[in-house]
């Protein structure tokens, strides 16, 4: 009898120890380190769960700031600025990194048949949607800028590692690929440091590892029609991948009651009149994810079916009728949570 009691009391004691043990285990998990800074005219946020999180965050920040100084269209004297300044004059020898970025981008321009164009800079500067003073330009100015947009006039010499823009006034803008492309560099850094966490570069997210409780990071896909911008249509898990969303709601300005957004159509010179609300691309390659989300948004719903089940990436597309088109492989990874939208089978 006493043995049974002792056994029972022992059980209670063990239960209490376990209860306490769980608390201890939870308390020893490192507190996440959060960091925010501005670069490439956007907000960059990192959240890492690891002991030396601050060191990794510092390294990442340094790396991205360095890239901004060398590769931004808006930094005077940057490598990219030098190429633009020498447009129509002479080829410019550039770093391996810039040469590779421009080569990859030019290939994407060809694949998209000009829906994506890295020579869009004269137009993006004219509209200034990303600047402090956005405006609707005069039609003549738009036409003039449009005549300078043509990726086929970007001449690359692999042997000399030079870039030449064939016409004066042409300029490169890598904004449609750079943020995703840099996620690949961040991946290398996080992998080397064994990091657990995520980075958001202007809304493009890369996540690495699992949370301390072993679950995947969960990301909310924004509701593109929610005026307050904090509601979401569903949740997504995409371990070790880059998630890039393009939507007109991200940046825009209003003039005379008309809304003008930041996604310029290289074929018209005006903000894209897409029949889509947003396109999310999930992919290992950040550059591909960034380029595709913009290009598919501009291409519109007609093009979506061809890309829906491509083995290289996954998509979540939301149209203006609130239909959501998902890659089949996202079953179990994307969960619709909003009652205002429906999954299109």
């Amino acid at each position: 009898m006493m043995k049974k009691q002792n056994l029972f009391l022992g059980g209670i004691l063990l239960f209490s120890i376990l209860l306490n043990g769980c608390t201890e285990a939870r308390q020893t998990n490192p507190e996440p380190v959060v960091n925010e800074f501005f670069a490439f005219s956007t907000l960059i946020t990192q959240k890492l769960y690891q002991e030396n999180g601050n060191e990794v965050i510092e390294q990442t920040q340094q790396m991205l700031r360095d890239k901004e100084q060398r590769l931004s269209l808006y930094v005077e004297g940057s490598e990219l600025d030098q190429v633009n300044q020498m447009a129509g004059i002479a080829p410019v020898q550039v770093s391996e990194e810039l040469f590779e970025m421009v080569s990859v981008s030019k290939r994407y321009c060809e694949l998209s048949e000009g829906r994506f164009d890295i020579t869009i800079a004269p137009l993006s500067v004219l509209w200034g949607v990303d600047s402090e003073h956005p405006r609707v330009p005069e039609k003549e100015k738009i036409e003039k800028a449009l005549s300078l947009v043509d990726y086929r006039k970007v001449e690359l010499d692999e042997e000399k590692q030079t870039i030449f823009l064939a016409e004066k006034g042409m300029a490169l803008d890598l904004g449609g690929i750079a943020k995703g492309y840099f996620c690949n560099d961040v991946r290398e850094l996080y992998e080397a440091a064994g990091s657990i966490g995520w980075i958001s570069i202007g809304g493009i997210i890369y996540n690495h590892g699992t949370k301390p409780d072993d679950s995947d990071f969960v990301f909310g896909i924004r509701d593109p029609e929610d005026p307050v911008g904090v509601a979401y249509v569903g949740t997504l898990t995409a371990p070790e991948k880059v998630i890039s969303t393009t939507g007109a709601y991200e940046r825009y300005f209003e003039e005379d009651g008309v809304i003008y957004h930041h996604i310029l159509d290289p074929k018209t010179g005006y903000p894209s009149e897409s029949d889509l609300l947003s396109v999310t691309v999930i992919c290992k390659d950040g550059g591909l994810a960034d380029y595709l989300s913009t290009t598919l948004y501009i291409a519109g719903s007609e093009a979506i079916e061809n890309y829906r089940n491509d083995p290289r990436f996954e998509v979540i597309v939301i149209d203006k009728n609130h239909n959501i088109y998902c890659s089949d492989s996202l079953k179990g990874k994307f969960e619709l949570t909003s009652e205002d939208y429906q999954l299109y089978e």
Binding site: V34, E36, L43, T45, K47, W198, S200, G203, I204, I205, N207, K211, F217, V218, F219, G220, I221, R222, V230, Y232, T235, L236, I243, S244, T245, T280
Partner: peptide, 15 residues
Amino acid sequence: TLTIQGSGGEIDAFV
């Protein structure tokens, strides 16, 4: 920036 920080929450970030 204005961020709501907390100990948990269902969503880690929005995209």
